[in-house]
Write a protein that binds this DNA or RNA. Sequence first.
DNA 1: CTGAAAGCGCTAACAT
DNA 2: ATGTTAGCGCTTTCAG
Lengths: 337, 337
Amino acid sequence: MTLPPMNQNVTLAEIAEIAGVSPATVSRVLNGDERVAEHRVESVNRAVRELGYTPSRAARSLATGKTGLIATIIDSNLEVFTDPFWGIVTTAISRTLQQSNLQALLMATPLNKADNMLASSLSSQQVDGAIFFQLHDDSFVAELYKQGLPCVVVGTPKNATSIPFVDVDNAAGARMATEHLITRGAKNIATITGDMSLSAGKLRYEGYESAINGLGRAVDTRLVAHGNFSHESGIEAMEELLDSGVPFDAVFVANDLMALGAMSVLHDHEIKIPEQVAVIGFDDMFAAQLGRQKLSTIRQDIEGLGSTAASMMAEMVEGRRPASRMLQTELVQRETT
Amino acid sequence: MTLPPMNQNVTLAEIAEIAGVSPATVSRVLNGDERVAEHRVESVNRAVRELGYTPSRAARSLATGKTGLIATIIDSNLEVFTDPFWGIVTTAISRTLQQSNLQALLMATPLNKADNMLASSLSSQQVDGAIFFQLHDDSFVAELYKQGLPCVVVGTPKNATSIPFVDVDNAAGARMATEHLITRGAKNIATITGDMSLSAGKLRYEGYESAINGLGRAVDTRLVAHGNFSHESGIEAMEELLDSGVPFDAVFVANDLMALGAMSVLHDHEIKIPEQVAVIGFDDMFAAQLGRQKLSTIRQDIEGLGSTAASMMAEMVEGRRPASRMLQTELVQRETT
DNA sequence: CTGAAAGCGCTAACAT
DNA sequence: ATGTTAGCGCTTTCAG
């Protein structure tokens, strides 16, 4: 692989000189200004190519007041890092931003300390915008957004705000999962919820509820056990369900991690999946395909989450105000339903 | 949470005026120049605080020729994204760089196309340095490095180069795993290798080999099955091993993913783990703790990988040339040994 | 120890 | 359609 010549210090001025035009013209060509004579455009481009010229971001920023940088902020308090999710989303963001000539700046920082560096670097045009991941406390983002910084959040903000966000359609996905269980012949469908204080937890429960309601029934509260999205909590919730003695022949679990835990207790009790109890999860995490029985689940478009967030940001940078978006989920039937 | 006042356009000049000093002095204070009278330092700092001033990166870059930006390059051809690894490493990098006042620029791009934007943006002082993840082809990095761009690679470069890198000590980890098997009483230890064309694959095999050699024996080639790090390949390799009929009472598998696959075929054959065959993996991936039997494995310090890479980069930016580093691994004994 | 002044490389009026 | 000319906000000689 050969690299273009190292552009130690080729400047726009030199290009101008070589091409025999003024710096302003070079700048115009570089920025795609229409009204430049064809032949000049060519000679400028030739010079650019020959010298391997790349405009200086710093100089451009200074002149335009735009940095071309988008902060991608990860609340490092979050424990969710073990989740492959992050790598995929941030990668998608970066790739998509690049198409709009924007760069992703990765900032991992605790979001709770009020006056951290983050605040000042965000609130003082060091970046053209910021993408946040779902947060417990939106007020920080709300503030920034009010100050005029383009913001988009990945996930559903807790306190309904006007900040544009993109999320998977948790409610629809949960409904789809539950309806799938119904289709497979389940009569008494239990659920293990996630952390209900998170929008994903709440919405997934609501999806389950709406599917049950669609049957013309109310949900039997004895059939809902509360977990917190952790593997451990899935185990406990399933034990609870079993202990209650209320019969059920299927269970919608709010995420795969808990579903895996739930399955293990089902196995321990020698309850056949899916014959005696069908189970379906949510997320389609990698481990869902690894166990002795591959888990049926609801797949979310993680990459789509990132690329959508990025394109929304690109729009905002151009002054538009994109509507929030919900991404469709997909049913993945494997061996547990 | 309250934010500092929005610093729309506070400039160094304004600070100078308010503090009653020259811009040059403000600049000196900002950059920690020693020889400024104490009282002036104070009045400058006060003004800075009151106005919520943050220096403009762009202006500073233009003046100094440094951007404060470090590219973190992910070869998006890599399929490994599903690996939680990325999120953790990049986050650690970002956090560590911040301590040196550097920012991580995330660039996901295919590294094979010769003249992509990446090349030019890297080779033309748009960034102060670049961190790469292990690559199939080092020539690109080698080129950049030769041109004087500070580079560090996470993982062991394939073609031994002089480029500083940081990696977990794969060989030592594999040896530790194998020796652990020996300690637990294993007599005939098989291994399932990873992709031998990757340094991790090769080194882990060598670690296994050296442990066997430590016993005063040569490795029995009938006991080594080749996988490629995928779950599927772990399954196949174990079947091969079993089919061969050569007895073994333990197996070191080059990564957890394959180990999980291998365990499933052991279970299918009703072979008791660890009584009949002990198994140990490598990586300590999350799923290792999820199955019906928790996998013993070698844990790598993923976060350390990122933070070490970042501090090495910080050193390089300051003109030093750090030595490459190997990170120690840790044995995690669970239920399979 | 401090200030004046000259850029860093680019863009954006403003002329022409 | 193109060139001239000011800056953008900071650092850094160079004087003093």
